[in-house]
Design a binder for these strands. Structure first.
Lengths: 222, 222
DNA sequence: TTTAGCTATATTGTCGACAATTTTGTCAAT
DNA sequence: ATTGACAAAATTGTCGACAATATAGCTAAA
């Protein structure tokens, strides 16, 4: 598995990563138009590399493109969130099931060690946990599935859109500590090599997250 | 849902579709290198549009690319087949479940009508059924899910790779009539709005297909 | 005032040329 | 004969310019 994020080599790689970050973090507003010329000057590269970056973003479902018209950052909405999380639930549930079989003992140890540090963070009352820590936990399980197609679809595919929802809706609520307990349960199921349970727990966990986000989204609108 | 296949407008669109077909059909051998210059002359376009087409094919997992080195058509193998079909089973099972809820009565009628014509074809002993008919059946259910993310991942994402395995392994065997019965059961479950059963049956159906393909693949190798 | 058509402007799509990198081929030293 | 360095060739990455298309603004007719 060769992820671009690790070491971007070409200018297109770097521009792709920068642009993606700017979209996910909300520096470029969702729904806004992406002018190739403007972005070219912004990132100090030619239009060609901007075009390539935009093409890649289209596959992550972060931008939508119309021929001869241009590209726009995707709009966020409750229905889109639901359809996204339906897919996420299915795929990441599967990842948890496979991880219970395919993760090495060492990887499982690392996972539990990660949760220990999270416990400290949660106890100390920091809300930082959610963004970095949560993503880290989920990534390890996804990678633990050892299924290249699955890994690619999640990490290169929909995960950045998921992050976009979370970042722009300002994740930091009462779910933080609750989510920690759910993570623990999932890790325990994986440790016991109980794939069926791990899948069920993961799906539940994601379902709760979805409800939480959906509520925030509805508040933001109305 | 806006699928490029329907009406390709730009030269990149057309080149993308042609190149994809040539790869899926095996006109360009799996594992072979894709020379941008060669393809540019072959399709009578500039290198820029070839590059864009290759980029898009990378997201379908039909080609693999290394920076400053080039792109190769993916290699087919038993392990890759398994990981691909694990994902397919999960996603299309979900599609069947959602379709049982979201397909309109008219769409379900059309689905059953399609199966009727397939029955005639199977009775008459044609093997044509498998490729076109099977894909048609599955497409309708996928579209019937009404989940844009799911539709995109399957139809724009992995389905062409699936077809590539089937075409290059020469699908046409004893599974043809069996598959028809399985299709009928799935359609009936959807007609009864029984999503849970539809998902189970679809997963089974895909699992059988996988075993069939895997065996063919192992024969082909050893 | 509204609408239709036209013109001007801006944006995207495509191309050929150049730069950067990798691969191939050659030659010399061990 | 094998290995290493270096030079030559081929391939990919990037750029700026031009062509094709869409958008905005204007004029004129109803």
């Amino acid at each position: 598995m060769h992820l671009v994020t690790e070491n971007p080599v070409t200018a297109s790689d770097k521009t792709f990563l920068q642009l993606r970050q700017d979209i996910v973090e909300g520096d470029i507003l969702s729904g806004s138009k992406l002018s190739e010329a403007e972005l070219a000057t912004r990132y100090a590269v030619s239009r060609a590399v901007v075009r390539e970056a935009i093409n890649r973003l289209e596959n992550c479902h972060l931008v939508e493109r119309k021929p001869n018209v241009g590209a726009r950052v995707v709009a966020l909405g409750p229905e889109r969130l639901v359809s996204l999380y339906q897919v996420r639930e299915s795929l990441e549930g599967m990842a948890a099931r496979l991880a219970a079989t395919n993760m090495t003992d060492d990887e499982i140890d690392d996972l539990r060690a990660l949760l220990s540090t999270h416990l400290q963070t949660v106890k100390s009352g920091e809300t930082y946990y959610q963004e970095a820590g949560d993503v880290d936990f989920h990534y390890r399980i996804i990678l633990g599935s050892k299924n290249d197609h699955l890994i690619s679809m999640l990490i290169e595919g929909i995960y950045h859109l998921i992050r976009m929802y979370r970042v722009q809706l300002g994740m930091a609520g009462p779910r933080v500590t609750t989510a920690f307990d759910e993570h623990s349960s999932i890790a325990r199921a994986i440790e016991n090599r109980d794939g069926e349970l791990a899948e069920i727990l993961m799906r539940r966990h994601i379902f709760y997250t979805r409800n939480n986000l959906e509520q925030k989204l509805l508040e933001a609108v109305g």
